[in-house]
Design a protein around this nucleic acid. Structure first.
Lengths: 192, 192
DNA sequence: CGCATTGTACCAAACGATCGGTTCATAGTG
DNA sequence: CACTATGAACCGATCGTTTGGTACAATGCG
């Protein structure tokens, strides 16, 4: 009986990362105050500093570690694996769908590129996005597209995902996002 | 007297809107503190409250008024005007290029959809984006596309613009944004 | 075994700094 | 002079952070 909310359950700090992830993607670095974080995690401020000695910056860093891990498992390994390119891209889109809760949740990296967060995490985000684009471009080359075209389409893939998230949330209409990622594999692999 | 010479020339509050616009698009609602606003405008806090009695929320509202005006002049009137659809879309893209400084500046509406700003301005932003999409869809219908397809492509246009802005800034590479808006008219008008 | 020691997980309270917001005396201009 | 615009000080609230401590389980040792 391990999952129930026991009062004295000792939680390693990884267990709080999903909650932090949800908070930072919603409020951003400046907007996610320690009070909000304390309320959301159920931990006192001081306890937060026990798990994350570096404070708020440390928390975001942990969330970004988790994001790097997500990208590795759900995109990089997947795209480099077995199956037809179309199938692999399809699976990537399924994982993207889950990550953004069907278009109802914003993107962490996008929101961290604003305000104070940008100064602190821009380089990490740049690296993450670069790897993502590179992995898509690679599978497109593998399936026969020209190198330059593949690189452009890798960029276009991220553009579509990020743009669809923003517009979907501006319009309160997730169907926009769903349509975009659904047709993404065909769009990327289309000839000429 | 002419416009130039008075040392303490009275500045109507509209003159500060561009500075506020630049600040809010860069830092967001939570990140743009009154201290930053005071420093950027050269006005003391009291003077800011003289021009904007409603405080920070009032300032953002004025910036959004300005944005509504921009959309009206640079998109809605333009797309409803004379010239071939392609030419009009081209001109719209030129204005978009200027608005976002060639892809080097973030989007105000996107950043206001985060943190505290979302609760305050979501409805206004939703209306603005809806009008933008509608205007693009209308000109596409006018040039012969099916109504449903035109509506989708109007959404796709905003998705591409917003996405390109985000990815360009994540990668420190404005060429991505430039390429996207350059090929936007052809993409929107393409047959089939 | 008994019992002190250590280490972990947690929190209430308070820190100095800064937040958004307000007031007011006065400098500048007509 | 009257009046407007403003700089500067101030307000209570909240910011991120730190201190000092409690509760408890595991360990060391006689």
């Amino acid at each position: 009986m391990s999952t129930a909310k026991s009062k004295n359950a000792e939680m390693p700090k990884e267990d709080y990362v999903p909650t932090l992830f949800s908070l930072f993607r919603q409020y951003g670095y400046d907007g996610a105050t320690l009070s909000k974080i304390s309320a959301a995690t159920g931990l006192g401020k001081a306890s937060l500093y026990h798990h994350f000695p570096g404070g708020k910056e440390d928390m975001v860093a942990s969330v970004l570690d988790h994001s790097d891990c997500w990208l590795q498992e759900n995109v990089l390994q997947l795209l480099a694996g077995k199956g037809s390119p179309h199938t692999r891209l399809q699976k990537m889109c399924d994982h993207i769908h889950d990550l953004y809760a069907g278009g109802t949740q914003p993107c962490l990296t996008a929101i961290l590129e604003t305000g104070t967060g940008r100064d602190l995490f821009h380089q990490r985000i740049k690296t993450l996005v670069t790897h993502w684009i590179g992995a898509i471009a690679k599978i497109l080359v593998e399936s026969g597209l020209d190198e330059a075209i593949a690189r452009q389409r890798g960029q276009d893939a991220l553009i579509s995902i990020q743009g669809a998230l923003i517009v979907s949330q501006a319009l309160d209409d997730a169907s926009l996002f769903l349509r975009t990622i659904k047709q993404l594999p065909e769009t990327l692999l289309h000839w000429e």
